[in-house]
Amino acid sequence: MNIPDTLYIESACRIVPGQAWKDDELIFGQAGTSTESFLVGLYKELQVNYPKWYKMDRLSQLGLLAAELLLPRTLGEAGAKPMDTAIVLSNRHSSLDTDTRFADQLADIPSPAVFVYTLPNIVIGEITIRFGIKGEQAFYLMDKPDWAFLQQVTQALFSEGQVKYCLLGWVDLFQENYEAVMFLVSANAGGGESRKIMNTKNLYQYHEQGAVN
């Protein structure tokens, strides 16, 4: 088994109210609009053209757009096979945004299409369908991003020798508050020099500052 000593941040993205960043570049800005308006605006800006996106709940829409910022349309272009790529995501509000919508419908006939999104890990499922990912997956609930823990989980996945890429991140949405921070991590030692080493300091720094020194 080839256990990598070092993991690298191939790319990172950050979506905060009104702004979407890839690495340290502002990709899309739309201040003062609702969560829906911003998500639709970013969807159009990225030219995603995936009609199923409109059927998703807002948490899955946010997670899919973050993945769209990071990943090539097919992972094969990056040299990854479906089983090579893992996904580790986390958030604070679970699927509460959709849970409350579903609860509001209970007096009438609730929508099955809303019900299927009343779990936070469905966002992972939507990303795997879109990008053909079939590797290990995990979703953690935590009060705030614990990058030290998430880094350990990611290291453990790579140490088992099955994973070459991991999509690691925080995807949180409730009402008008939303935030996504996602990293594409690899063990590829032969990548570009601009990449940063994946460690707790760099993960926190990108999350808080939008750049890694």
Binding site: D108, I109, S111, P112, A113, V116
Partner: peptide, 13 residues
Amino acid sequence: SIDALELIVLLQQ
């Protein structure tokens, strides 16, 4: 299949 369930709800509602 989820759309099929939505159609059933639509017919009822």
